[in-house]
Design a protein around this nucleic acid. Structure first.
Length: 811
DNA sequence: CTAGGGTTAG
């Protein structure tokens, strides 16, 4: 055989093999086409095909490789895709783009950017830029998205409709989006994509978002949005819903409805947009009207319709309505998809628990064929929201996955139920899991600081909040007002309140409460009047706060007048809690006949809070008979409550009725009632130091006792006489009834004076009410050491300065 | 291979 013949044979064999390979490749390609990207069977199918390739020695490349990678990515098996990618020497731009998109949607734009950066400029195209821009925008990095868009244009790539929709989406994430918006609008026009429905929708959407930013001139920008919508030649579902929700967000339900009416075809999404709009704005009957109209026109409700309507029922406690919808769903939806079942059941869980049916909510949860993080968070919220802390804790600890909301619910729950240490621990645990807290989580942690009186910790959280850009957050701001006030820095609370960019009724309530607790009753009332002037409607909390403020400052007539205005001017029916505070107001001022009259006239059967207020007032004024009556009622209503026994025993001892006092003590012992031990604490150098009565546990007790002794002798020279009556006054000194007994608040104050920088204000916290002798002693002490001493007790604040207390002995 | 809206957990 000559050489020519040999060459020809080799060629033939090669070409045969090539056609062979091409045929194989086509077969693989056809098989891979059968993998539906998001179906659950796609991954095992792809694995089988891939395994077959490996066995037959076929090396995937080109579009087959890319298709295989894409299937792996879409079924969240990125590792397999990456493995394939790493095996090819020079991956093409399509496989790179596939990975960029996959990393982005997996929440890792940094890995995506790594691939992007390693892609040579020569093989880049618009698509890979688009994928990366979207990646940033989906991961909330608007600036990076815009920056990359600039780079793309700088490098000479032509933006297309995908580019514009992505970058327009990213605009909403940055602060000055209004300026960018107009620039991009003109670029769209120049690019020739200005007639594309998708781009026009995205532009409309950005104008809508601009309009709803607080500083914007909404009507002008909504006008621009409307114009864009009207000039969209081919409108799709999105065009309609974008403009409808745009109006809803900008509080123009009528305009939204006008657009809706002008719709030629009745799209379910548009109905849903209207319904959810009505729900969000609290127009429940309108929402229901549309829901029924859909049914009448034969338009099928979907999961979005149901969830909107159910959440409306949940938030307005329309349980019967919600239950009817539940029944209707069970009747009409015969073959619901898993997605449908999941979201509808999630909405049902929140309906049931918000209407007080926690156990039924749990039953729904148990029966769900699939559950997700939303279902679990809803159950957790149910337990937390209804005060079932133990169940919440165990449910939380067994959750298979947790997200930002999970932690936030637990943290704010702990704060709300006074489990402050646990709340702060969870907050730091959450961060050590790499989760960035949102403003609600911060608010929870800050509330824990208020409970503990941990000012330093609270200040640090405030600083972090500002650094993270949450400084305009309402929830965090309101929590901070309370924190500063409850840590004794009323000025800081005031300053914050007046510098907050937006405030709501909660902020006003918090600030009024701050003034009231610190004994500034008149200022509290002035602030309330200012609130009314600014057209903020008071709520039931406002009045609770106002009544307390009046009570602390002895403003009896004012308090009575505001109480009367509740129903008369604002249509708020006073609850039993309001009556209790009114009675407290009268009793503290010694006006017992008024108090009794209120009790007789009020529309409630007097419960524990009423008798407690009465008893406390009787103790202050030594009204024995009425006090005993109140105590008797309380023994019936809550025999295990320690406070009643303590107050009654103290009343007896103050008039020397020792036998009666002993009888109360015995009663307490016989019923196994334990007195909550009094304890005081103080924060020094970011550490909380706790003291009990006659403390011998704190490492520095010896120094404290000798310092106290020194102080007392100086105080005596100014006229201080230790009041031995108060040794018996508080049952802290149960075991050791000698005049030497030292209350926890004295220890904490002395410790503060010793440890804090010279001249620094001493802030001490006590769980129970401050003892009378301590109250007297601190007046002298503030003079002797020439420092301000602030004590927060269970009820209010006492500022001791120059021998005086801010409470004016009225507490 | 890449985009844009309507819902449920505080």
């Amino acid at each position: 055989m000559n050489n020519a013949a040999a060459t020809s044979l080799t060629n033939l064999a090669q070409s045969l093999r090539q056609t062979d390979i091409r045929a194989v490749a086509n077969r693989y390609a056809a098989q891979l086409q059968l993998c539906c990207p998001h179906s659950p069977t796609s991954f095992p199918l792809a694995r089988t095909i891939h395994a077959h390739m490996i066995a037959s020695g076929f090396k995937p490349h080109g579009h087959i490789l890319n298709r295989l990678m894409d299937v792996y990515c879409k079924s969240s098996h990125l590792v397999y895709a990456r493995h394939l990618f790493d095996e090819i020497p020079r991956p093409d731009v399509v496989s790179r783009t596939t990975l960029i998109a996959a990393y982005s949607s997996a929440g890792d734009p940094r890995l995506a950017r790594e691939i992007f950066d390693r892609t040579p400029l020569s093989i880049r195209d618009s698509v890979c830029y688009n994928a990366m821009i979207t990646g940033y925008s989906h991961n909330n990095d608007g600036h990076a998205a815009i920056e990359l868009f600039r780079e793309m244009r700088w490098n000479g790539f032509q933006p297309d409709n995908f580019t514009f929709t992505s970058v327009l989406g990213a605009l909403a994430l940055v602060a000055d989006h209004e300026r960018h918006c107009q620039q991009l609008h003109s670029q769209v026009v120049k690019s020739g994509t200005g007639d594309k429905t998708s781009v026009l929708n995205a532009l409309t959407s950005v104008y809508v978002k601009c309009a709803s930013s607080p500083s914007a001139s909404s009507s002008l920008l909504m006008g621009a949005a409307k114009k864009l919508f009207e000039e969209t030649p081919v409108k799709d579902e999105l065009s309609w819903t974008t403009i409808i929700t745009g109006y809803v967000r900008n509080d123009d339900l009528d305009a939204a409805h006008q657009v809706f009416i002008g719709m030629s075809e009745k799209l379910v999404v548009a109905w849903n947009a209207m319904i959810s709009g009505y729900v969000q704005k609290g127009c429940v009957s309108e929402a229901f009207g549309m829901f029924r109209k859909m049914h009448g026109l034969g338009i099928r409700h979907d999961e979005f319709t149901y969830t909107s309507v159910l959440s409306a029922c949940a938030d307005t406690a329309l349980f019967p309505h919600g239950k009817q919808v539940h029944a209707y769903i069970l009747r009409t939806e015969e073959k619901p998809t898993l997605d449908f079942t999941l979201s509808v059941n999630n909405a049902l869980i929140s309906l049931y628990w918000k209407c007080g049916k926690v156990d039924e909510a749990r039953k729904i949860f148990e029966k769900m064929p699939i559950k997700d993080i939303v279902s679990r968070n809803a159950i957790l919220s149910a337990y937390v929201g209804s005060g079932r802390v133990t169940e919440a804790r165990s449910f939380f600890s067994e959750m298979p996955e947790r997200n930002l909301l999970t932690w936030t619910v637990m943290i704010s729950g702990c704060a709300h139920y006074g489990l402050a240490e646990e709340g702060l621990k969870l907050f730091s645990q959450m961060r050590s899991h790499g989760l960035e807290p949102c403003d609600y989580a911060f608010a929870g942690a800050i509330t824990s600081c208020s409970v503990l009186g941990s000012l330093e910790n609270g200040r640090q959280l405030h600083a972090q909040l500002v650094r993270l850009g949450f400084d305009s957050s309402l929830s965090a701001g309101n929590a901070l007002i309370t924190m500063y006030a409850r840590c004794g820095v009323a000025d800081a609370a005031h300053c914050l309140f007046f510098t907050m960019p937006f405030v709501d009724s909660v902020s006003w309530n918090a600030m009024i409460a701050a003034l009231g607790q610190h004994g500034h009753g008149v200022q509290a009332l002035e602030l309330f009047e200012q609130m009314l002037k600014e057209d903020i409607l008071p709520d039931r909390i406002t009045f609770l706060t106002i009544l307390s403020a009046c009570s602390h400052a002895g403003l009896v007539e004012e308090g009575r007048r505001y109480f009367d205005s509740m129903l008369g001017l604002y249509g708020i029916k006073p609850g039993e809690d309001h009556y209790a505070r009114l009675i407290d107001l009268f009793c503290r001022a010694g006006k017992f006949s008024e108090a009794k009259e209120v009790i007789h006239k009020m529309p409630y059967k007097p419960g524990a809070p009423i008798w407690e207020a009465l008893l406390a007032g009787c103790r202050i004024h030594g009204n024995m008979d009425l006090g005993i009556e109140a105590a008797e009622r309380l023994f019936e209503l809550m025999p295990q409550h320690d406070g009643t026994y303590v107050l009654l025993a103290n009343m007896y001892s103050s008039v020397g009725r020792w036998n009666d006092r002993a009888r109360v003590r015995k009663l307490m012992r016989d019923r196994g009632v334990k007195k909550e031990p009094g304890c005081s604490w103080i924060e020094v150098e970011n550490m909380v130091h706790v003291f009990l009565v006659d403390d011998i546990v704190h490492p520095e007790v010896n120094a404290i006792y000798s310092y106290l002794k020194e102080l007392v002798s100086k105080m005596r020279k100014l006229g201080y006489v230790p009041d031995t009556k108060f040794v018996l006054h508080d049952m802290e000194s149960e075991q050791k009834e000698s005049a030497l007994s030292t209350h926890s608040e004295k220890l904490a104050v002395a410790f503060g004076l010793l440890k804090l920088p010279i001249g620094a204000t001493v802030r001490v916290f006590k769980n129970l009410r401050i003892c009378g002798d301590c109250h007297n002693a601190f007046k002298f002490m503030s003079k002797v050491v020439a420092r301000e001493i602030i004590v927060r007790d269970g009820k209010r604040f006492h500022h001791f300065k120059d021998g005086q207390c801010s409470c004016g002995n009225y507490w």
